[in-house]
């Protein structure tokens, strides 16, 4: 489990040392404070390979970092570095597990080979919001089949979609393309998931992508986007279920409702596995106020403190 992140010179973060990541960690803070960049830093730190940064764009796993940001598409990797300067100080990401260094990535120039120590970590970056470049659901479905995780994906979805019997990939006769259908108990036939609203599709995608092996880390950006509060509650249910299976979940949010739903899902015995980190970015220096689960519970339930 990632406990501490140290990073330098990545996007809007000149320097950060954040500790206190828990099995279920929520990042909050105003727009522009560095929540998404922190998720990017963890993802890069976990997945980067020992090749020049500009070739990372060809890596499917890392490509998402570049392609989800329009400014990066126009100038490739430039905007990965502090203030967009390729010749600036080294980009560094260090991920630690309970004090023991696990993974270290240092890049002095986008065109030089990266200095990397430690093995690639099993980290997934999940961007459920509509509008982000996504793999088609059929591709996600296929990956889950190949990884032997389809049953788990459907089990998670059943936990949040009442009456769901199964999820199937079928061939669309007209388009001659595979499409994902949901089968509900008591109904004849199936319903294409694509016909559901954006929020439901985002929820389904989240559930599928959260079906990760034990020991994995799921990084999730604003899962509440486009969701009705009921769907947000279901997302909270899916994220807590993932935590219970031994997947570390680190998410960013602006939603107080989501924090409250997570608290509702957690049992008193699990509350110590939860934390909220309120980020503060002062001219590039990122710090965090750590609220342990018990404090979050007391703040939200008894006083109504807005922790964002």
């Amino acid at each position: 489990m990632i406990h501490t992140l140290e990073c330098r010179n990545i996007r809007g973060i000149k320097q950060a040392e954040i500790s206190g990541f828990s099995p279920l960690t929520v990042l909050v803070g105003p727009s522009g404070c560095g929540k998404s960049t922190l998720l990017d830093a963890i993802f890069l730190g976990a997945k980067a390979t020992a090749v020049p940064v500009h070739t990372w764009t060809t890596d499917t796993a890392l490509n998402i970092i570049f392609t989800r940001r329009a400014e990066m598409q126009s100038d490739l990797v430039r905007w990965l570095f502090w203030r967009g300067t390729l010749e600036s100080l080294p980009l560094l990401v260090s991920l630690q597990d309970e004090g023991k260094s696990q993974r270290f990535v240092q890049v002095t120039n986008a065109y030089q080979k990266a200095d990397i120590r430690g093995n690639i970590l099993p980290v997934s970056l999940i961007l459920p919001q509509p509008g982000h470049p996504h793999e088609p659901l059929a591709v996600v479905y296929t990956k889950q089949v190949e990884a032997g995780l389809l049953g788990l994906s459907i089990e998670i979805l059943r936990g949040v979609l009442p009456g769901l019997e199964s999820i199937l990939m079928v061939l669309d006769k007209e388009l001659q393309k595979p499409t994902i259908h949901a089968v509900f108990s008591g109904s004849n036939g199936s319903v294409p998931l694509a016909l559901a609203g954006d929020g439901v599709v985002a929820l389904a995608r989240l559930c599928f992508e959260l079906a990760l092996p034990q020991g994995s880390v799921a990084l999730i950006e604003e899962p509440e986007a486009h969701q009705h509060p009921r769907a947000t509650r279901m997302s909270a249910k899916a994220m807590v279920a993932a935590m219970r299976r031994g997947v570390q979940v680190i998410l960013s949010t602006h939603s107080l409702e989501l924090i409250d739903f997570l608290l509702e899902e957690l049992t008193p015995e699990e509350i110590h596995q939860f934390a909220v980190l309120r980020l503060l970015n002062k001219q590039g220096v990122l710090s965090a106020i750590h609220h342990p689960g018990e404090e979050v519970l007391s703040s939200r339930r008894e006083i109504g403190e807005d922790l964002r």
């Binding site: 105003p30 107080l256 008894e302 006083i303 109504g304 403190e305 807005d306 964002r308």
Partner: peptide
């Protein structure tokens, strides 16, 4: 910057144009 009506909080504008927030916290809290 943050929610001003949660948990029974009352907010006031002072004559000096500052915001004063009154938060009921339960006994001993």
């Amino acid at each position: 910057a943050t929610g001003d009506r949660t948990g029974g909080t009352f907010d006031y504008a002072t004559p000096a144009a500052r915001i004063l927030r009154v938060v009921p916290c339960n006994q001993k809290k």
